[in-house]
């Protein structure tokens, strides 16, 4: 359970970081990117479990979350330091 909560948080944190890292490269102001990333992340945080529990099997959401975490982590690392 703790692992699941932790993974959920990690996923949302990565969404926020990715938005914060990527949006300024598209010309968005840094403060806007930071705020947008954070807001999306905390709306996702309580909502992701709903989707997980709505799924029919346990494997699909677990794989999806694991994949998303890995993909986002890779993206943030690949983008390098902030602009």
């Amino acid at each position: 359970m703790v692992l699941a909560v932790g993974a959920n948080y990690a996923l949302c944190a990565l969404v926020a970081a990715a938005a914060g890292r990527w949006l300024p490269r598209l010309g968005v102001a840094r403060i806007e990117a930071a705020a947008a990333g954070d807001l999306v992340a905390i709306v996702l945080l309580p909502v992701i479990p709903i989707f997980v529990f709505a799924a029919r099997s346990a494997w699909r959401p677990t794989l999806a979350m694991g994949g998303a975490i890995a993909a986002l982590a890779l993206a943030v690392w690949a983008m390098g330091p902030p602009a």
């Binding site: 949302c12 926020a16 938005a19 890292r21 990333g37 954070d38 905390i42």
Partner: peptide, 15 residues
């Protein structure tokens, strides 16, 4: 309390 709880947006944008 967003900056305490989820500082990763600012960290991502400002490092």
């Amino acid at each position: 309390l967003i900056t305490t709880f989820m500082p990763f947006g600012p960290v991502g944008a400002y490092g």
